[in-house]
């Protein structure tokens, strides 16, 4: 699948934004000034961006507790996201959601979702809307290897297949559900094999390879738009941080993450591929890198300086009217 120069630049910018956002959040979290807890997406960028680069604003995605990357890939703004993570006024969700519930429905981002397996049924619903209204739209649900074992997920795959819904089940298999290894918890080994049971096409792709994800997603999304029903994509990848910040990762060998950062980094791979093929040159990528670092400085400073929400906000937004 040919990818235009503009698309490549856009994809790089998106992946790099995710990476630097997560690196900054890790740093800020360590200071103790970020409330709650965070689950970082660093290392998995090619999955979110490879899929979302095929989507338009009116297409819907649903994410997981590890949702910052999907938000950025689908067009959520970094500034309001950072405000939200800091729990400040002006946050994307007014400080009521936080890291695990970042959402922007105006961008077709139906929310990070802190219930494992919570998203697939909802994505079926968004796909139903597209199908009933004949918009040609699609819905994508990102789920982890942990979520692949939830009943809701399996029910949703059955429902989507029975109803031929334009929904794509993307399983980001990073090898661990919290601290439990996927090679133990996923019966049958590969998640992709479950596609066959529900009579939908399924592929397994290397999640460190943007081009592989992009191509697989393109086929699945195109099929869904044309009425061909649901698909499954298993993206294998590695997370560069623990399940959440503060996870001592005693279930991983000391070298595992260091090696992954060197050999399984989607950004390194991408840069090498596009520069070797002379599709983009290093200088323009470096310029993007600098721009993004500046953007993170601005977003973080703004978030630290922003006021807390008014206490009266506790009582608003429970119902539309009551």
């Amino acid at each position: 699948m040919q990818v235009s120069r503009d698309k490549l630049l856009e994809a790089y910018r998106s992946m790099k934004t995710i990476r630097e956002f997560e690196e900054r959040v890790a740093k800020e979290f360590a200071t103790g000034d970020l409330p709650g807890f965070v689950h970082l997406y660093a290392g998995e960028e090619a999955s979110a961006v490879g899929v979302c680069s095929h989507l338009v604003k009116s297409d819907q995605i649903i994410s997981t507790h590890r949702g910052h990357g999907h938000c950025i890939a689908k067009g959520c703004e970094v500034g309001p996201m950072m405000l939200e993570l800091f729990g400040r006024k002006g946050g994307l969700c007014g400080g009521k959601g936080g890291s695990m519930h970042v959402a922007d429905l105006s961008q077709g981002m139906m929310g990070a979702n802190a219930i494992v397996g919570g998203g697939p049924p909802l994505a079926c619903g968004a796909a139903m809307t597209a199908k009933i209204k004949k918009t040609g739209g699609v819905a994508v649900t990102f789920t982890g290897d942990g979520g692949s074992n939830q009943g809701t997920t399996l029910e949703s795959m059955n429902l989507a297949s029975v109803m031929q819904l334009p929904v794509i089940f993307v399983f980001e298999n990073n090898g661990f559900a919290e601290s439990t290894a996927a090679n133990w918890s996923v019966a049958g080994g590969d998640i992709v094999r479950r596609a066959e049971a529900f009579a939908m096409p399924g592929v397994q792709v290397d999640g460190t390879d943007f081009f592989a994800v992009h191509e697989a997603a393109g086929e699945a999304i195109d099929r869904a738009r044309k009425g061909g029903g649901p698909s499954l994509i298993e993206v294998t990848l590695t997370r560069f941080y623990g399940h959440h910040q503060g996870d001592n990762q005693s279930y991983r060998t000391p070298d595992e993450v260091r090696n992954a950062r060197e050999s399984r980094c989607p950004l390194v791979n991408f840069r090498r591929r596009v520069t070797e093929a002379s599709l983009l040159d290093a200088a323009e990528l470096d310029a993007i890198d600098r721009e993004i670092l500046d953007q993170m400085d601005v977003a973080t400073a703004a978030a630290r300086a922003a006021p807390w929400p008014d206490a009266a906000e506790v009582l608003t937004d429970v119902y539309v009217t009551y």
Binding site: Q60, I62, L105, M110, G118, P120, P121, L122, A123, C124, G125, A126, A127, M128, T129, A130, I132, K133, A139, G151, T152, E155, S156, N158, L159, V162
Partner: peptide
């Protein structure tokens, strides 16, 4: 199908996106 989580969740998802 008899799969309450999926279809009630789908109803909720559809209702959040315009139905």
């Amino acid at each position: 199908p008899i799969s309450e989580s999926a279809f009630i969740g789908a109803a909720i998802g559809a209702s959040t996106t315009g139905m």
